[in-house]
Nucleic acid binder design. Structure first.
Lengths: 341, 341
DNA sequence: TTGAAAGCGTTACCAA
DNA sequence: TTGGTAACGCTTTCAA
């Protein structure tokens, strides 16, 4: 079996088409001026050689790599996947490609990823969340490309922001619970401070409870984020064991909420009735569960789309330190799982 | 506001550290021989300048880009996300980065993506599924890099394969249904032939029905793949309207199965009892639903991991046309949603 | 262990 | 509309 052969270059195409490499280069860009006939000849030569443009070389020469780097905490999360889709679609017209990394909810891993990605010289960077290591901040600042933080409202933004207040979003749920007449209210979230968005939700939730003069003690941190259906199930049992009087619970995500709902139903509890359960994120599962689960929709896809639009603007403006803040408004979707009567 | 500044290069670092660029280049690779002290000096200089290696240039020079291109049908799908995770983790030790694309279950889009990705000169390509346009096949053949097809068993493989028979997997479910004593059995899948894996499952399912001497008429194709919870819900109602005697149904994925389950429960049907429902893919939701949903586990993560291992081998072997076939064995997970008594 | 020279495949720039 | 020349920032190769 032969080793891999060297792929054809522009020079090969140019030779076959009887033009200079420079003309071939032009022929591959729509906007460049090349005679119709010449372009056709070149395309034919290229196709017959199986020529594919080398964007590595193109990027080196033009200093435009066509990459946008993006980090998300987890690949397997419908919310982040939706944001990513919005971003991809928004950037599609520009021909930019996404360079994706998963931080696994870990700032050290984020730092490693960001450095690895910056080696590819992305023209812009999108990061999920506002918590970063100092070195990561320095790397991004040095990179001197537009940075957009999404899904959060950092106190010290790196650049532009497309996000919302996780604390504020969670307080919407407290308002809803109180409106429905619940008094003994709990919260189920992840362990540790890795998931800063989850932590913000909890903080906002507890603060809102206090503001309503209610107890903020019924909190259970359970497992490492992202907290799963299984963990939601375990958590609600633990919560009920410790605070049997609990009437309503918000879970940090719809997945854990669904786990909690299923666990309650297996125990013969009525939801709502015996206990109300709410989630976060407007996942499909919240809509299709029995009963449908009250949740908060943060327009994940729109977040990505707005980030894309921002990047396009920033790249055109040719200046790196835009600090614009796009605020997404979380919406409460009240559903049967928390509605009385 | 100033325009973006030009990032520092190796030459800058070399100058500051008082060595040649070549030595800086070596200092950034663990295995290269550089004096301890020199390396330290260089690292310091680099850090103080905020220097980050340019892998665009490195790749051009060394002809090793460190990219593995991978396409999956959909970003928002836990199965493919798991495979991707297996792939990423398996490649982590090599330092290779994944260049990801979503085909949206469309071979034309796949062709476009593959061409775009080949411009980045990936060292290997992973594609999901065995259906490709002719031009796509040609492009991949010309690229002369290892190709691995996953999640399928193509009749004409492009290269190596890590997959399983979707038809065979579905027939496991028929065996299970028959064993449980169901006779009037249906199938819910997606519309059209876009999702070839779904189509294979249907074919295998219907063939197995016939082999058991059962009717294969209760088939509903509903909506474009990926078929959602909502479509699963609509589909089961339509199926029951047309064939009220249906005792058991397999859905093309766990998501549609869950939608179907929820719909039945809303209609007051008992699952199982009035109707048995099964899915495919071993999603979390199948495990945590009430009742838990019988499904088929195809070890999505392992598929990715095995693909990674294969790629590492192929890259070491330095030959491009390996045709090895790694067969994954789908396993039926029998759960309450289809169990009698 | 270190350095100098010659590319890698493309595009920017200037000239024709 | 086309072509020549000089980068782009790095690594390969060879030499010291």
């Amino acid at each position: 079996m032969p080793g891999r052969k060297r792929p054809p270059t522009m020079a090969d195409v140019a030779h076959l088409a009887g033009v200079s490499p420079m003309t071939v280069s032009r022929a591959f860009r729509e906007e460049a001026s090349v005679k119709q006939e010449t372009r056709r000849k070149i395309r034919e030569a290229a196709e017959s050689l199986g020529y594919v443009l080398d964007s590595t070389a193109a990027g080196l020469s033009s200093r435009k790599t066509g990459f946008v780097a993006a980090t998300i905490p987890s690949i397997n999360n419908a919310n982040f996947a939706d944001s990513l889709r919005g971003l991809t679609e928004g950037l599609a017209e520009t021909g930019m490609q996404i360079l994706l990394g998963y931080t696994d909810y870990d700032v050290a891993e984020e730092e490693r990823l960001i450095e690895q990605m910056l080696r590819r010289r992305p023209e812009a960077v999108v990061v999920t969340g506002g918590a970063h290591s100092d070195r990561c901040r320095r790397l991004l600042a040095n990179a001197a490309v537009p940075v957009v933080e999404i899904w959060d409202q950092p106190e010290e933004p790196l650049g532009a922001v497309v996000g919302f207040s996780n604390a504020g979003a969670a307080s919407l749920m407290v308002d809803h619970f109180v409106e429905q007449g619940y008094r003994n209210i709990g919260f189920i979230g992840g362990d540790s401070s890795r998931d800063t968005r989850g932590l913000d939700r909890r903080r906002g939730f507890l603060r809102a409870l206090r503001e309503h003069g209610l107890s903020d003690e019924r909190v259970l941190a359970y497992g490492m984020p992202p907290i799963t259906m299984a963990q939601g199930a375990e958590a609600i049992e633990a919560l009920r064991a410790r605070w049997p009087e609990t009437e309503a619970v918000m879970c940090v995500s719809d997945l854990s909420a669904f786990g909690a709902l299923s666990a309650c139903q297996r125990l013969g509890l009525k939801v709502p009735g015996d206990i109300a359960i709410a989630g976060f994120g407007a996942y499909d599962i919240a809509e299709h569960a029995n009963p449908p689960i009250t949740t908060i929709d943060v327009s994940a896809r729109e977040i990505g789309a707005r980030a894309a639009a921002l990047i396009i603007d920033l790249l055109e403006a040719e200046q790196s330190s835009d600090l614009s803040l796009v605020e997404i408004e979380p919406k409460l979707l009240a559903r049967a799982s928390t509605l009385k009567g």
